[in-house]
Design a protein around this nucleic acid. Structure first.
Lengths: 145, 145
DNA sequence: CGGGAATCGTTGAATATTCAATATTTTCCA
DNA sequence: TGGAAAATATTGAATATTCAACGATTCCCG
């Protein structure tokens, strides 16, 4: 009996997700390059763009970063005057994050870069395929939790 | 006119991919935990499991790592006696990587953990959905290059 | 052939991330 | 009420990744 060949790595869902994620993220990063902002900061700014004040825990969850990483990234963003911290009066363990005016202006520029990427993908990849893919991903994420 | 709400981040393909990738990778990492091996090392071992000898460039491409990161990860794996380097006789700029016996044995254990994850996903998420998702991802990856 | 340009992999320094431990505040229940 | 346990965010040390520069080899073309 020959050695079992075992499924090639390119057929594993985990690998396909990693590859697709890497590629799409690279393209988005390239668009953000001229603003000098990593994708994670866009996510943070976007979540904060409702003006409401989000705790670090909420943020970490929403932007797919763990706490210490987020803390340090926020430190940098505070240095750049994009966001600021306010201690939560109701629960003084918490810190509420807000976007500054400068942060809001940047958010709009980044949003438009991101939307243009989405449009580009939809165009090259097809509207239906894009919609189907999104739906399947949402459903996978929901099941996986 | 009210401030435009702009598309929520959870509707961006880039975000959905990042989220799904993160979740699936976490689960896989948890399974690999008892072997103490990160997912990237499994990818490397898997590519090398054809016994053929792959250059660092090939490997970097295949396992979604950039060159310096791969070099250092391979250094660690050499220390652990999982893989070894051989200078390519035909092109002495190149280094060919091979899996050791110890590496091959580990690969098999990891493969079976990975397959069990795939089975788990297929079961919870549905065979059809899984197949559809894979197909769409493959096609996205192809288009994106 | 000769030599400049390209390719391949590694290195060192700078940067970023992670893990474990900590400080602070709140919650809960005995 | 008192105090142990839980929740929240940060810190510092250890680890990993990235960027730019380098050394070695091969390619290519004048």
């Amino acid at each position: 009996m020959a050695k079992s060949p075992s499924k090639p790595i390119t057929e594993h869902l985990a690998y396909l997700l990693a590859q697709a994620n890497r590629e799409i993220n690279r393209q988005l990063d390239a668009r953000f390059r001229k603003e000098g902002v990593p994708v994670e900061q866009w996510r943070i700014l976007k979540v904060l763009s409702d003006g409401k004040g989000h705790s670090m825990g909420e943020l970490a969850e929403a932007v797919l970063l763990n706490h210490p990483t987020l803390t340090k990234m926020v430190d940098r963003m505070v240095s750049d005057a994009l966001v600021y911290r306010v201690q939560d009066a109701d629960d003084r363990r918490k810190v509420l994050m807000f976007s500054s005016d400068r942060g809001k202006a940047l958010t709009q520029r980044l949003n438009s870069l991101a939307l243009s990427q989405e449009a580009f993908i939809a165009e090259n990849y097809g509207n239906k395929a894009t919609a189907d893919l999104k739906r399947l991903l949402e459903s996978l994420i929901e099941k996986a939790n």
